[in-house]
Each structure stands twice: as structure tokens, then as C-alpha cells.
């Protein structure tokens, strides 16, 4: 049980695909002008990731090693096409905003990366939890970037006006440079926290060694 929980939590924070591993960087930069489009994009990717990871894990003993990448891509592309059509039917407005980036989930290296590194070597159950953790980590990252860019760039959050009348929209946050600034600053902050923690762990370890040394 602990293993499955670990798989999920790992994707959310410690190995967050967007903020820690920096893979699949195109959607976080391109479609996060608002929180909603970030959320939908994240969920669409999660759905594709779970489906493709499951199927690849099921079929892993049948896929010849030499042609595994094309096979993975075909499986991923199948699910992306399905998701694309489902989004177009359910949320046509958001689908229009996301545009080309939904079909482009096929080439999101997060999905192929998990297929190659995890699903093709692990049992089905763990592939699902890993895909779930990675997908949710991706989703919250996209939504978070979208929130910041929407709040500063348009003064709204999930479409609701948050900032007062006198707030001046930071137009740059709705433009591509805003995505890079936001992304960079978030990664910077997370690394700062990570380094601080690592240093504390190191300090604690050193203290323990000293204590042990004295006792010995």
C-alpha cells in the first residue's frame, strides 16, 4: 500500500514533472494564460497518461524491444485523439482556446517518458498510480501557473474578478514572456526551499555523527 501512496506523492512534489524534472515544458508555457485552460489541459494530459500507461504496462511483454517507441506513440496517439474529440464535445470553448496543444499531447515527453521509464517495466497497478501522481502533479503545476498569470494579467481567477477596480492588468503576464517569468520564479522558489531542506538534513546528520562519535 505504502508503495502506491509513494508513487502518487512523488509525482505531486518531489518529482513534479513541471517544476522538478522540467519535462513536457511546452503546455506549461503555452496554454497557461488562465487557470481554467491550465486545469483542463492538465486533466486531459492526466487522462491520456493514465490510459496509455495502463495499456503499455499490460502489453509490455508483447511489445518487441526494437520497435517499442513507435508502438508507445501509436498507443498514446490513440488516446489523444479520443481526448481531443471528448473535449471538443464537452467543453468546446476551452477546446478552442487550447487548439493545437491538445493534439500535441502526443509528443509531450512526460507521457513517453513515463511509458519508457516506468510503465514498460512495472506491474499494471503501480503504473496506474505512477501515472495518476505524475498527471496530478502536472495538473496542479499548470493550474498554479495559470492562476498567477490570470490574476496578474487579467485581475481574475477562474473567470471571477478578484482584483479591485484600480488594478492595472500586467499585460506581459498574458504574453509568452509572462509564462517564462512565472515558471522561472516558481522553480527558483522551489529550489530555494529544496536546498534549505537538504542543508538542514545534512546538518542534522552531521550532528548525529558527532554525537555518535562522542559516545563511541
Amino acid at each position: 500500500m505504502q508503495k502506491y501512496l509513494d508513487d502518487i506523492v512523488r509525482g505531486l512534489f518531489r518529482e513534479n514533472p513541471t517544476f522538478r524534472m522540467l519535462i513536457g515544458m511546452c503546455p506549461p508555457l503555452a496554454v497557461t494564460t488562465s487557470a481554467v485552460s491550465g486545469l483542463i489541459m492538465g486533466l486531459a494530459t492526466t487522462a491520456v497518461l493514465i490510459c496509455s500507461s495502463t495499456l503499455i504496462s499490460v502489453l509490455k511483454s508483447l511489445i518487441p524491444k526494437q520497435v517499442r517507441i513507435p508502438v508507445f506513440i501509436v498507443i498514446i496517439a490513440t488516446f489523444v485523439t479520443m481526448i481531443d474529440l471528448i473535449l471538443a464535445a464537452l467543453v468546446p470553448d476551452v477546446h478552442k482556446v487550447l487548439g493545437l496543444f491538445v493534439p500535441l499531447i502526443v509528443v509531450n515527453c512526460l507521457i513517453l517518458g513515463r511509458a519508457e521509464a516506468f510503465a514498460s517495466r512495472m506491474p499494471v497497478s503501480r503504473s496506474i498510480t505512477d501515472a495518476l501522481g505524475m498527471g496530478l502533479g502536472f495538473t496542479w503545476a499548470l493550474t498554479f501557473i495559470g492562476c498567477i498569470r490570470e490574476l496578474l494579467g487579467a485581475g481574475t481567477l477562474f473567470g471571477a474578478t478578484i482584483m479591485g477596480e484600480s488594478f492595472v492588468n500586467w499585460q506581459i503576464m498574458q504574453l509568452p514572456p509572462g509564462a517564462f517569468f512565472t515558471m522561472g520564479l516558481i522553480v527558483f522558489t522551489l529550489n530555494l526551499i529544496g536546498n534549505h531542506r537538504a542543508r538542514n538534513v545534512q546538518k542534522a546528520a552531521r550532528k548525529q555523527i558527532q554525537v555518535v562519535g562522542k559516545e563511541g
Binding site: 492595472v168 500586467w170 499585460q171 506581459i172 503576464m173 504574453l175 514572456p177 517569468f181
Partner: peptide
């Protein structure tokens, strides 16, 4: 440049 892109009207 940040200001110029963010607040052209101001």
C-alpha cells in the same frame, strides 16, 4: 522592457 510590455498604456 518588462514595464514597456506590461504597461504600454500607462
Amino acid at each position: 522592457v518588462f514595464l514597456g510590455v506590461a504597461f504600454p498604456t500607462q
